[in-house]
Amino acid sequence: MSGTAPEPAEIPGIRLVIVDDHAIFRSGLKADLDPSLLVVGEAGSVDDAVRVIAEVRPDVVLLDVHLPGGRGGGGHEVITSSAALHGTTRFLALSVSDAAEDVVSVIRAGARGYITKSASGKDITDAINRVAGGDAVFSPRLAGFVLDAFGTSPAEIADDELDRLSARELEVMRLIARGYSYKEVAKELFIGIKTVETHVSAVLRKLQLSSRHELTHWAAQRRLL
């Protein structure tokens, strides 16, 4: 059943740039991806990535967190340097790293999701489609980070809205952390898949904007503030 559950609307001809410093991984990934995706560029370093992205203006950039070059900022430097394109180009972070600060740094820089390199070609294709459609992509591990950082008790007061997750958002995050696909989450919670996507996007927004201590601490460590 794996991976067949999420069926984001297929957007024909998504233009994709793959940024990863390992050429072997790039070619392997290209072979794995669905043929409907058009890989219009590749880059292996921060400077190359910024140049290629500005040149071809892709719909989605598949971005490794750790990259050589630039000022040493890796993936989040690519995102911040491509700020002019944020309206049209969306970033999906791809990483082997388990370290929370790596993941959170690219998400806070503006990536729309995070997925591990061990994910199958089909899963990555789905994630690219979802990001291209404006939704957020959360892996179970990212959901775990979010729950760890925001706490597992729901928000009660309205004014710390950015610093806490609502009860519904917590439920969604828990199910994603347990390995549920969006569709399975929707079925489990008796809500529509669009509602699930709305909740996940809301969590992503909080993750990017919240000034919660844990998040700002990570950000400060990476000199993102």
Binding site: L147, D148, A149, F150, G151, T152, R212, H213, E214, H217
Partner: peptide, 11 residues
């Protein structure tokens, strides 16, 4: 403790 609670305590 969760990480969030720990942070709250140390704040």
């Amino acid at each position: 403790t969760t990480k969030a609670q720990r942070a709250e305590e140390t704040r």
